[in-house]
Simulated assay, not measured.
Amino acid sequence: MSFALPSVKPKPSLPESFDIHEGSLGVPDLMTNGLASARCSVDASHPVALSELNYRKNVDKMNMTVLRNTQGLHAPLRITMELKSAQKIGRLPFLQSSNVMYDVLTGRDLEIGPEDIFNTPEFLEISGQPHAMVERSLGLL
């Protein structure tokens, strides 16, 4: 019996070509291109890593599909409209939004993850004069 649910199995993905910039000795020239460029071009990621990167999106897609199959099209449309309106809530440019309404609608307020611990406002590197930031966002500067 199929409920038209999206697949949860990770699908391995490999790049079509490995762009390895080799130096004169036939090894990657890390001093010019950087360490990260050599690792990304040589190292193939684990199949589960891609699944973990898209975990939240896959869970949301599966929940919307189950809602559509059980309650009809109105339920996912209503929830999607609420999420879009919650994302449009803004503050002044120099204030960071806490996204409380969006977190409540998605259920993220019940979870604690690394971004909740290591992403505290006192460690943000955003600084600037509030008046200048508002004028810049309005196109006056």
Results as ranks from 00 to 15, higher is better:
R78M: 05
F94L: 03
L110I: 07
P114K: 09
M133E: 12
D109N: 12
V27T: 12
G139N: 09
G34H: 05
L83W: 01
F18E: 03
P10D: 06
F118I: 06
F123G: 07
T32M: 09
V100I: 04
L110A: 14
S45M: 15
Q96H: 02
S97V: 00
E52C: 13
G107A: 03
P12H: 11
R108G: 02
D29T: 01
G34E: 11
N119L: 14
S85M: 10
Y55H: 06
G113Q: 07
Y102I: 04
G23Q: 13
S2W: 12
L105R: 02
S51D: 12
F18V: 05
E115V: 06
M81I: 03
G139V: 13
K57D: 14
H74D: 07
E111M: 05
Q87N: 02
H74V: 04
L53Q: 10
L35C: 11
S85P: 01
F94K: 00
R78K: 02
T65I: 03
K57R: 15
T80G: 10
P15Y: 06
G128V: 09
K61H: 07
N69P: 02
T65N: 10
L67S: 03
H131E: 13
I20N: 05
E135S: 14
A86L: 05
L25M: 08
K84W: 11
P121W: 05
G128A: 14
S98V: 01
A86E: 00
D29S: 10
P15R: 15
M1K: 10
D29Y: 10
L73E: 14
F123N: 14
E111L: 09
T65Y: 07
N119V: 08
V104T: 07
L73G: 04
A38V: 10
G139Y: 04
P121A: 06
A44F: 15
P28I: 01
A86R: 00
P15V: 13
K88I: 01
V66Q: 07
E135Q: 09
A86F: 00
L124M: 13
N54D: 08
F3T: 11
E115Q: 03
C40Y: 08
P47M: 08
A49V: 08
L14W: 03
C40W: 06
M31T: 11
L5S: 09
S97N: 07
L110Y: 12
M81Q: 11
G128C: 03
A86C: 02
V48M: 11
P93E: 08
M64V: 06
E52N: 04
P130M: 09
L25W: 12
A38P: 01
Q71S: 14
S85L: 15
M133V: 05
C40F: 05
F118Q: 14
G90N: 08
S37P: 01
K84P: 00
Y102Q: 05
L124H: 01
